[in-house]
Design a protein around this nucleic acid. Structure first.
Length: 411
DNA sequence: GTAGTGTACTGCC
DNA sequence: CTCCGACGCATTCGG
DNA sequence: CCGAATGCGTCGGAGGGCAGTACACTAC
């Protein structure tokens, strides 16, 4: 039995009124247990407010104005009326809900939408492009809101706009999956870090804990970037003894994949940007002969000094006039981590080990300099050097720390 | 048809 | 990116 | 001794400014 979007909406509403995290986890866990395999990934993604897996390049390309237009159309109002309703409540979802509730004419033959229907239409929204594509997207949205009940409208609008706001994040979902399939949260976390899709992880969790641990990173399926955590050098020294300190670059994060002679570049949000920076891709390609996944920061330079962030931005996601901008703004990669090499996943190794692997596998030119030190004054000196050299400051990392994708670890 | 302008959307820090 | 609030959990405080 | 208060960590969400892409519409 396929899940209807109405049932999904009811679960959302329950969760929205549940303050405690443990209670929320229990509710999600119950729902997961009763789902069939086809709906499981969809339910999980949608509950986290994401139309597609994070590694996917698909985007629905719908913003507030498109949604308001569609709601205006099906309720027989103009967009101004919809916008003012939204402004009154401050919540697009609630506004859509009340407008749908008040509309005079209800379609008699409204079909019930299933999660699979939604998925299908999301794909249409993501893949439609070119002339008249806007009209086609409008048609999809009108069909959506013409067929939804007010409650469904609330959550469909929010899902389209990427602001579900029911408080289900990765941690809660991880624990719910672990509970539903009787596996440890750690196993779920491991599979999630490697596959970057909790929907798929739930399917694997069905097969047991061993299957979860057997999931590994694959090239061209980007993993989340590890994030920095705030703290003081003094505290970290007390905690760890020895730290790895590097420049904090004022640029843009990248993830470089190379396998079978093919190279691809990904942005922080895991959007592919290979085409925008072929010069940087070529530098990295030449720097190693391994199949590899590297993590680093691209900065703009002139006369050996870093340029402000804006210069990088002009190039990083560009699709037009690329050649002329390569001449105007020189980019340089600074590699500071390695995630995977020749089929081997490295994220569980401590930073110090990963650093060794990085230095062996990649020629030195673009590997970010690193100071390994337990001396606060020495680290402070590096900080001043960083500022003198035009960088933002320094990053300090625990040398024992594994690579934790998407988590603010002791980087 | 092509060029220019306006609207909507996304992603980076 | 940064900032902030809610909750959970462990520890300490106070009668 | 035990319940309440406190403090810390985790998680989720909001906001601000800039740069760019894609499509639609109009004018020539």
């Amino acid at each position: 039995m396929r899940m209807d979007f109405l049932e999904f909406s009811r679960i959302c509403e329950t969760l929205e009124h549940t303050p405690g995290r443990l209670d929320m986890t229990a509710i999600v866990q119950d729902a997961l247990s009763s789902l069939d395999e086809g709906d499981l990934p969809l339910f999980i993604r949608y509950l986290m407010g994401r139309p597609f897996p994070d590694w996917s390049q698909d985007k629905i390309g719908i913003g507030p104005n498109s949604v308001y237009d569609a709601v205006a159309y099906v309720t027989g109002k103009d967009r101004g009326a919809v916008v003012s309703t939204v402004n009154q409540s401050g919540d697009p979802g609630r506004a859509v809900e009340s407008l749908l509730a008040n509309k005079e004419q209800r379609s008699f033959f409204s079909e019930s939408l299933t999660l699979a229907d939604i998925a299908n239409d999301f794909t249409i929204l993501a893949t439609t492009s070119g002339t008249k594509s806007q009209k086609e997207k409008d048609r999809v949205l009108r069909r959506f809101f013409g067929n939804t009940s007010p409650l469904e409208g609330r959550y469909l609008a929010r899902l389209l706009l990427g602001e579900l706001r029911i408080g289900i994040g990765e941690g809660t979902m991880r624990d719910a999956i672990a509970g539903a399939f009787s596996v440890s949260p750690a196993a779920v976390e491991h599979a999630y870090q490697a596959s970057n899709d909790l929907g798929e992880v739930a399917l694997i969790a069905h097969k047991g804990e061993d299957a979860l641990y057997a999931v590994h990173i694959e090239p061209f399926r980007p993993v989340k970037m590890m994030l920095a955590k705030q703290g003081t050098v003094t505290d970290m020294l007390i905690e760890s003894g020895v730290l790895a300190a590097e420049y904090k670059y004022d640029g843009t994060r990248f993830q470089f994949h190379k396998s079978g002679g093919v190279c691809r570049m990904y942005s922080r949000k895991l959007e592919e940007v290979t085409h925008a920076i072929p010069d940087v891709v070529a530098m990295l390609d030449a720097a190693t002969s391994h199949d590899i996944i590297l993590d680093g920061e691209v900065i703009a330079v002139r006369d050996g000094r870093p340029l402000p962030f804006q210069h990088v931005l002009k190039r990083f996601r560009r699709k037009h006039d690329i050649a002329s901008h390569i001449e105007q703004i020189a980019l340089v990669p600074n590699i500071f981590d390695i995630v995977w090499i020749d089929g081997e996943t490295l994220i569980d190794l401590p930073l110090s080990e990963r650093r060794k692997r990085l230095e062996t596998a990649v020629s030195g030119e673009y590997v970010a300099p690193q100071l390994m030190s337990g001396d606060e004054e020495e680290i402070d000196l590096l900080y001043r050097t960083a500022l003198d050299d035009g960088h933002e400051g320094i990053m300090v990392k625990d040398i024992h720390s594994p690579y934790t994708p998407g988590v603010r670890g002791k980087f």
